[in-house]
Design a protein around this nucleic acid. Structure first.
Lengths: 146, 146
DNA sequence: CTGTATCCTTAGGGATACTG
DNA sequence: CAGTATCCCTAAGGATACAG
C-alpha cells in the first residue's frame, strides 16, 4: 500500500468508487494521458491538447494532481517563470489503466484512434511501454488525437 | 473494431477521450462493477449498493448503458413486472479496465478495500476471473464495499 | 506566457411525487 | 416493487479579465 497520498471523504470503501473520486472527472485522465504518452510538460502544452480546457480548470486540475501526489511540479531549467510537470511513480502506475481504457475504446467506440506506434506497443510490448513511461520518453510527439 | 455501438459527438478522436465520454461519470462504472463482480441484476439490487444512487439517475444510467450496448435488459423469468440486467460482451470487455482501476486504487488510495477472493483472482487468476465474468458467476455476493 | 480570480451558465443529479 | 417525471439546487466548468 505504501502510504496513500490523500485521505478522501469516500462514498464507500470500494476500491473502484475511491479510484473514481480521484480520476473520474472530465479532465484529469486527459492530463495524465498527455504527461504519460506525449512530450507535453508545460502549462501551455496542455492548453493546446485539442479538447479545449480553460485556464482556470487547468490550474485547478494541476493542483489537485499535486495534492494527490500524481504529479510533481518542478522549476523550469532555463525559463525562470515556467514550470515543468511530470508524473510521479504513483501517476506512472496508472499506465495499465490508461492502456486498458484506450484499447477498450479503440475496439468498441466509433471514430476512435490510437497512434500506430503507441497501439503496437500497447498490444505487443507493454513492458517496453512501461519502461518508456518511467524514463519519460514520449511515444508520441505533440498530439495524440490525430 | 466490430461495428461500434454508438456514434458519439466526440471532443476529439482520441481513444481515451472517447472512452471517457461513455464511462466518465459518477455512476456508470459503479453499475458495471455490480453487474460484473456481484450477483446484482435487478433495479432494486443496484439501489442497495451503498453509494446511494437515486431512482431517476439509475433509470437514466441503465438506459444509457443499453444505448451503448453495454447492458441487455431481459424480461424476468418469474416476476412479470421485473427485468434482469446483464452485461453484453462489450460490457464484459471492460473487465481489464475495472481490474486495473481497482488495483491502482487499492495500492494508492487510503481506506480502499477489495474483497479478498476478488483481489486474489485479480492478481493470480485473471483468466479465471474473465471466465466467471463471461459465465455470469458472481465472485462476490451482494456487496463489494465492505 | 504562467497562472489566478471573478462571474455566470449549464448539466448532473438529489428529493420526491407519482404511475403501473 | 420497477420505473418515470418534476422540481430544484449545487458544483463543474466556460469566458474572460487580470496579475506577476
Amino acid at each position: 500500500m505504501s502510504e496513500p497520498p490523500y485521505k478522501h471523504e469516500a462514498r464507500s470503501g470500494c476500491a473502484l468508487a475511491n479510484g473514481l473520486e480521484i480520476l473520474g472527472d472530465r479532465w484529469t485522465i486527459l492530463l495524465i494521458r498527455d504527461l504519460m504518452f506525449t512530450n507535453k510538460e508545460e502549462f501551455g502544452h496542455f492548453m493546446q491538447s485539442g479538447e479545449g480546457i480553460s485556464t482556470n480548470i487547468l490550474t485547478d486540475r494541476l493542483n489537485r494532481l499535486q495534492q494527490y501526489k500524481l504529479v510533481n511540479k518542478l522549476a523550469h531549467p532555463s525559463h525562470g517563470k515556467k514550470y515543468i510537470y511530470e508524473l510521479t511513480e504513483r501517476g506512472q502506475a496508472l499506465a495499465p489503466l490508461l492502456i486498458e481504457l484506450a484499447l477498450w475504446a479503440h475496439h468498441h467506440v466509433t471514430d476512435t484512434l490510437i497512434p500506430d506506434k503507441l497501439y503496437q506497443m500497447m498490444i505487443n510490448d507493454k513492458a517496453g511501454l512501461y519502461e518508456r513511461v518511467r524514463n519519460k520518453e514520449p511515444i508520441v510527439i505533440i498530439d495524440l488525437k490525430k
